[in-house]
């Protein structure tokens, strides 16, 4: 084995002075915080899409403001707001409603995935809205004609198709989510970027650590886009392609 490879293995391996386990742990944290953020984003996105489509004027205005503002400002700003402002706001609510003094702390993990969820929700809202527009009106009319109540139409006819049409767009949102999770490192959460940076600072070998971090991100993106492609193929089965 060449010397640099031996040195690299010692640095990034699983020995007593190796950083391998920590890097993998950090990669798991990245996946955990991204998927939590993505799930929360789906909730926000669905709510905002519903607000836009409901025809209710105030709900539509709130949803439009949310998607426009959030997609127009840097994710880093949203993270700063949630991380520094979130706990203050929670504390304020706490004092207001429970009359309690004292502080409500927001762990870095929660602050992180909430920030990612808020950002990602704005993008997912657009995806859901587009997917809803793609559902054929005739199917809804047909469902109504056979006497299905509204919620049953939503559950049996609309929701499955929206999910199906939204899948490719959601795949893109997931990638955004994954990349945004790197910015959570400013909150102190030890995810992949922060761990790479800590290792680089500690050993003065930024190059090896950042390159390893980048490679792990590539593994995560490749695996997850494979999963999305699989899901898409499954969702599209039984659908005639033009």
């Amino acid at each position: 084995m060449p010397a640099w490879l031996v040195a690299y293995w010692e640095l990034m391996g699983f020995g007593p002075r190796g950083w391998g386990a920590l890097m993998l742990q950090a990669a798991a944290m990245t996946v955990a915080v991204s998927s939590s953020g993505f799930a929360l984003g789906a909730l926000f996105g669905a709510l905002a899409a519903w607000g836009r489509l409901s025809g209710h004027r105030i709900a539509a205005a709130i949803a439009t403001t949310y998607t426009t503002v959030i997609r127009g400002i840097p994710e880093l700003l949203v993270i700063y707001l949630v991380f520094f402002g979130g706990a203050a706001a929670l504390g304020w609510f706490h004092r207001l409603f429970w009359g309690g003094e004292g502080f409500v702390s927001l762990p870095a993990f929660v602050a992180g995935f909430v920030a990612v969820g808020i950002s990602n929700g704005a993008y997912q809202a657009e995806v859901f809205r587009g997917a809803h527009a793609a559902v054929a009106r005739g199917e809804i009319e047909a469902a109504r004609a056979v006497g299905m109540p509204r919620w049953l139409i939503a559950r049996r006819i609309v929701a499955p198709q929206v999910l199906r049409f939204a899948l490719p767009g959601l795949g893109n949102c997931w990638q955004l989510c994954l990349k945004e999770s790197a910015l959570i490192s400013v909150t102190g959460l030890v995810e992949l970027l922060r761990q790479s940076f800590i290792g680089g600072r500690s050993t003065r070998d930024f190059f090896s650590f950042l390159l390893t971090g980048a490679a792990l991100y590539l593994v995560i993106t490749t695996l997850s886009s494979g999963l999305f492609a699989l899901a898409e193929r499954r969702a599209m089965r039984g659908l005639r392609r033009a």
């Binding site: 990349k179 790479s196 190059f207 490749t222």
Partner: peptide, 23 residues
Amino acid sequence: VFVFRGTPLAIQMFLIYFGLAQF
């Protein structure tokens, strides 16, 4: 395209700024 779309911009920036300067 694969590398630059598959990794976060922050890590790319750090790699160029801190990573390259160590050599």
